[in-house]
């Protein structure tokens, strides 16, 4: 996939799924455009009205902890987020993001080098994050799941595997 260049939105450790996509909306806010409007509502009210396509979320450890709700990842995709860079990810968010085709970068160094508003480029194929402070390499996705991501997410991947597409 093409490298993604966007502006940084920076947050701290343990950003949980309830502040990414509040539980009270899980059965009432279901349309992509509406989901985008409430993304990060309880963390940063400035985010949804101002996020631009391919902007990048940068956060500390354990990003996406808490619920299994897939909307934690998909609301960010619908909001136009191009990638999430974090020191670490919760396992459920990690799975949901891969399944939604949202690029994830685990890099403590890149997180330390980036501040809100910085421009950053994420090259998933090369496995690099380029910032004003330099370029950082990050480990590729596990071999066994890279196909899911490359096919654009779990559902297209499954259709392909079943020979439907």
């Amino acid at each position: 996939m093409e490298p993604i260049t966007g502006k940084v939105w920076k947050y701290g450790d343990d950003v949980n799924t309830d502040v990414i996509f509040p539980g009270k909306y899980t059965y009432t806010v279901t349309e992509p455009a509406e989901m985008a409007k409430v993304a990060l509502e309880d963390l940063d009210p400035d985010f949804a009205p101002n996020v631009q396509k391919n902007d990048v979320i940068v956060a500390g450890a354990n990003f996406g902890c808490g619920s299994s709700r897939e909307q934690g990842a998909t609301c960010l995709v619908h909001a136009g987020v191009g990638a999430v860079i974090a020191a670490s990810f919760s396992r459920l968010f990690f799975r949901n993001a891969i399944n939604a085709g949202l690029p994830l970068v685990q890099s403590v160094e890149a997180v330390a080098a980036l501040e809100k508003g910085d421009e950053v480029t994420v090259d998933v194929e090369a496995g690099t994050v380029t910032t004003q402070a330099g370029t950082f390499a990050f480990p590729p996705l596990p071999e066994a799941v890279i196909g899911i991501f490359e096919d654009g997410g779990l559902i297209p991947h499954t259709r392909k595997a079943l020979g439907i597409d």
Partner: peptide, 19 residues
């Protein structure tokens, strides 16, 4: 725990990847 799409794929194929 798993995600919604993963459950949909289990419905279709029975399978899921786990580490």
């Amino acid at each position: 725990g798993i995600g919604r799409s993963e459950m949909a794929v289990i419905m279709a194929t029975g399978k899921i990847w786990l580490r």
